[in-house]
Design a protein around this nucleic acid. Sequence first.
DNA 1: AAAGTTCTTGACCGATTGGTCAGGTTGCTT
DNA 2: AAGCAACCTGACCAATCGGTCAAGAACTTT
Lengths: 211, 211
Amino acid sequence: MNVEQIPLRAKTKRAENERIILKAAEKVFAEAGYGGATMQLIADVAGRPKANVHYYFQTKEQLYRRVVDQIFEIWLQAADAFDGAKGPSEGIGAYIDAKMEISRNYPHGSKVWASEVMHGAPIIQDYLEIKLVEWTKDRAEVIQNWIDQGLMDPISPRHLLYMLWATTQHYADFGHQVETLNGGKPLNNTEWEEAKQSIKMIVLKGIGVQP
Amino acid sequence: MNVEQIPLRAKTKRAENERIILKAAEKVFAEAGYGGATMQLIADVAGRPKANVHYYFQTKEQLYRRVVDQIFEIWLQAADAFDGAKGPSEGIGAYIDAKMEISRNYPHGSKVWASEVMHGAPIIQDYLEIKLVEWTKDRAEVIQNWIDQGLMDPISPRHLLYMLWATTQHYADFGHQVETLNGGKPLNNTEWEEAKQSIKMIVLKGIGVQP
DNA sequence: AAAGTTCTTGACCGATTGGTCAGGTTGCTT
DNA sequence: AAGCAACCTGACCAATCGGTCAAGAACTTT
């Protein structure tokens, strides 16, 4: 018996079931918070008995960590738009676009991440202290280089990044509020474009970048 | 027996005890979320038996609503800085200052509010639909007037407000993340001023206002 | 000091929680 | 068709949850 074959076969089914459960968990954690979420509800949303959820994820915390892992990877990947850009107009513009797309396509994940950080990051503090610190330092240096090259105003790179994070994630995390203030309807395509354009206009002009 | 005297006497003690419990509840709700918070923990933080907390607040939901009420009032009051301003530089500048002070002084309340909205505002959706819609409409009109008078660029007032909310509240809601990226230490006075200045510079320049 | 309120709290309750487990089913390998 | 590993789940458990209540303590008003 080939050692590789069994795990591969098994992995296919396992991976599929884990995907379904993770999707349900992401939704429930986002809507109820970690404390408010129950394994029973996650199981119901995933359409299977609670014991089956426990078969794939032994504890609630393990399941939660996997959900947070996922969104953090997506979050980091948005930096690809940032890197390799020739200047702030292209780099920051693309980063805003990418983050806004994440807010639109993964609102549940964004909320889970926000909840986690808001409650002091009890589960993923190691991520914050290592990966995020490193990520932020790198990006801040890129911005500082742009400043040194006279491509933008000398503002604090750190506070600029906070503004970008906060503003783009607002459309996911506070989506319910945005929707309520939009007459109770979610933003349509045009309105999402309007939001992106508004943010880019204000930020880019605000840091002295020519469009 | 004077009808007014008894309630007054009683009110003093009741008010003081409610204040202590509300303070503890705000902290616990902020740190654990509504679902994760327990009446037992709130009682422990307030330094009294659980039954005593239930004497002053019959249900968990009633206690929670009172906490949310408090922060919403403070949130609305920040608009005073907005009103009566002669132009966008003064008005928006003062609003940013006011919101940043709230983030610094009431971080727990801000988190409770954010949590509530993130989870679909199950408790205070009536507030959102009435008070907040009205508030936003009024403020958007003020901004539109400034635009019509040529005092600032023609940007979407609504998205500008979202940017202001998101950016200022980020320092409370994501305070743990900001602290981690600040070398594990809370922002000191100088750093808070730096944050305020950075935000004001970017936003005001971004909407075409002369400082 | 008696009467009447408000305040306080240990003990308790039914319901729900995260998690376990034994025993059965399924599906691939030989 | 026999064997084996992965998968499935109803029944169950100790712990904890929000909330109740009765009985007494503390304080005011007469």
